[in-house]
């Protein structure tokens, strides 16, 4: 399991060396297609790595968009007034929701990368570590039905953020801030933790 974990990290790190698709901080289809071409058409790169490389292009594009929008009233800054934290988060969420109004399920977790994530998750949720991981997920689970599986939806404020089992986290491709993985039930979420937005998700990512 450990070998698989480090192989995954090494593979993803290698994939990360692929040229960035664009400086444009918006998620345009053109930019994403360019990013995809630069990796997926390389015959030396296998399909697994190509899917992960494309995933990286997409999460980086999201992080760039986030950084561009997190300015002005939407900038999260140190404050003694918690109302300003809430207001900045709400402003940021609104700006991202507007900028990604047309975003669809699968835009970041593409059909090509979903099976890769399922394969990465499966061994970490089997055996003794798997039992521990499932216990952690159950332990911190939000109340059933409270998390909307909808792109651009807000993660419910009153619900705990499920702890991501450490063994699972090391297996998955690293993410740029402020994106994090969260697992709710059998499903994998990509969460913008600064805006509390659901960026994308894979339903039934855990099949074991």
């Amino acid at each position: 399991m450990q070998v698989n974990r480090w192989l995954t990290i090494a593979l993803f790190s290698s994939a990360c060396a692929a040229p960035a698709a664009t400086e444009t901080p918006t998620l345009t289809d053109v930019a994403l297609q360019e990013g995809g071409k630069k990796t997926s058409t390389d015959p030396a790169v296998n399909a697994h790595a190509a899917a992960l490389a494309e995933f990286k292009v997409r999460v980086d594009a999201y992080a760039d968009l986030h950084a561009k929008l997190a300015k002005g009233t939407a900038k999260l800054a140190q404050t003694e007034d918690p109302a300003k934290i809430s207001a900045a988060k709400a402003a940021l969420a609104a700006k991202i929701q507007a900028a990604r109004a047309g975003a669809k399920h699968g835009e970041i977790f593409t059909p090509a990368v979903r099976p890769v994530f399922k394969r990465l998750l499966a061994p970490e949720l089997k055996g003794e570590d798997g039992r521990d991981a499932k216990a952690v997920l159950k332990d911190d689970a939000p109340a059933p039905g409270t998390v909307p599986f909808k792109v651009n939806a807000k993660y419910p404020e009153n619900q705990p953020l499920p702890t991501v089992p450490a063994n699972v986290l090391l297996t998955l491709p690293p993410l740029p801030a402020p994106l994090e993985y969260r697992i709710v039930g059998q499903h994998l979420l990509l969460l913008d933790t600064a805006a509390d937005l659901i960026v994308d998700y894979i339903l039934n990512a855990i099949t074991t």
């Binding site: 800054a77 140190q78 404050t79 003694e80 934290i85 809430s86 900045a88 988060k89 953020l161 600064a194």
Partner: peptide, 18 residues
């Protein structure tokens, strides 16, 4: 903790400096 939102890192009284 698992019940804490990342926004707390910006609350000065928690001294997390973001």
């Amino acid at each position: 903790g698992n019940h804490d939102d990342a926004g707390q890192t910006q609350y000065k009284a928690f001294n997390m400096n973001g």
